[in-house]
Structure formats: structure tokens, C-alpha cells
Amino acid sequence: MATGTEPPPTHSGVHGATRATIGARHLRTDRWWLSPALTAGGLLAFVLYSTWRAFANADYYAAPYVSPFYSPCLSENCAPMRGGPNWEIIGGWWGLSPALLILIFPLGFRLTCYYYRKAYYRGFWASPPACAVAEPHKKYTGETRFPLILQNLHRYFFYAALLVAGILTYDTVLTFRDEQYAWGHMGLGTVVFLVNIVLIWAYTLSCHSCRHIVGGRLKHFSRHPVRYRLWGWVSKLNARHMQLAWASLISVGLADFYVYLVASGAFDDPRFF
């Protein structure tokens, strides 16, 4: 038995000198690796797809649909979109894909999102790979230092994400036109865009920063009944934040892919009326 007078142990973690001597990193018998593997695979697939589409600078507009990856279009080198989000704020000097200018905001929002942080810390960084499975890193400082201390900027990306969601809502309204820009029409793409925008709003509003801002920061709910009610609604959405994160990630990718298929001529948008 230890007497309490020994110097502090030099080993770290579950193999430390004072811990129970068990050689294995973990003793879990379930398929603990499945969840982080699926998460990493899903995120990697989206990163590869969105990188291809963001750099492609082509097939992102087929009237009346604009890809969510390219909206709003902030440079002059965009396809003209009648009534659409052609906002040439930065002028003509930008030579790369205009998607790169706008994607940084939703990317920042998702990168600093509390759910995605869990997902990629577990899936890619193995910190930890799963509960009670020892991580492979010798040192750990968490989010106390640069660059991970920047995760605290999540609320600013949330504000930007609200603007982007507003613009995508505008794009969805524009899908109630036909190829000649006449209003009062609807196609399969309209349905795709509608589903996408509902999921984007649900994900954005279910954000933990949103929950904090609308009411979580209060000490006395009873003095702010409206904010308390809003907080209750956001809390219900927030309980589904992970599911909404995945659903909206898939839907935004599918909406872009739909526009790609129509714009590249691979598929004709079925018109309902």
C-alpha cells in the first residue's frame, strides 16, 4: 500500500502509478469505435463534396435555382441571377470561386458548433475516441489556448448564420418562379429548397448560443416571461441539435447537388405547375 509520502507519479492517465494496474487502454466490449468512425466518414464525405463544389465555380445556377453554396454571390464573376442574390460588394478583383467568399460563414458556424466540436474531437482527433477509451495524446489543454480558444467566437458565427439563413429563405421564395422568371410556379427543386430551408432554420435556431442569447443568460426567468417562453422553445429544438445538424448538412448538400444536376443538364427539373 502507498504510504502517502511517495513523490507524485510521473506516468499519466489510466496507466499512472497510483491507478489500478490494467494494461489495456480500455475494457469496453461494445462496438465503441462505430460511432466515431461513422461520424468521421460522414463529415469527410461532406468536406470532400463541398470542397469540389466550392472550387468548381460552375453549374451553380439554373433559373430559378441558385446553389446554397453560392448564395449570396459577393463578387462580379458570378453568373447573372435575375432577381437573385447578385450582390457584388467586393467588386471585380476576386478571381476565385465566389463560393469561397460566403462559405466561410456557415463553415465557421458549423466548425465552432458545440455538436460538431464533439463530433470531430471524437471522430478525427480521438480526444477521446469514446467514453472511457484512453486517448492517444500525451498532453491536453482543451480549449484553453490558441487556436481552440477561438471556439468561444461561436456566437458571432451564429449571428452570421442568421443572415445567411435569411438569404437562403429569399432564394427559396425565388424558386416559386419558372425558368422565364414568372411567379406562381413550382417544381421539384422548390420542394428540395423548402425542405432545406426548414432544416437550416431549425438547426440555426437550435444552436446553444441562440439558447443562451434568447434567455439562458438570465438569472430570473420569472421577470422575463417572453424570453422564458422563447428559451423553452429553443431548448426543445436544442435537444435535437445533433439530429438537426446532420439533417441540415445533408439537405444543404442535396440542394446543391440538385442545382448541379439541373445546371449541368444531367436532369430536367420536373415542374408541377
Binding site: 458545440y114 466540436r117 464533439k118 474531437y121 471524437r122 480526444s127 477521446p128 467514453c131 472511457a132 491536453y140 489543454t141 482543451g142 480549449e143 484553453t144 481552440l148 480558444i149 446553444h208 439558447r211 443562451h212 439562458g216 436544442n238 435537444a239
Partner: peptide
């Protein structure tokens, strides 16, 4: 607090079902 990287293992193992991460640590 900055050491927590909200990977939610505390919530997963809590026998009382307290949403430690979502209701305490993230707020």
C-alpha cells in the same frame, strides 16, 4: 472550464440522467 471540450461523456454516464453538458457546461 476551458479544458472541457464538450465531448459529453459526463452526460453519457450520469445515472441520474442529468444533461450535464447541455444544461450546465455549455451554458
Amino acid at each position: 472550464l476551458g479544458y472541457c471540450n464538450i465531448t459529453k461523456c459526463c452526460t453519457e454516464v450520469c445515472p441520474e440522467g442529468i444533461k450535464i453538458t447541455d444544461n450546465a457546461l455549455i451554458p
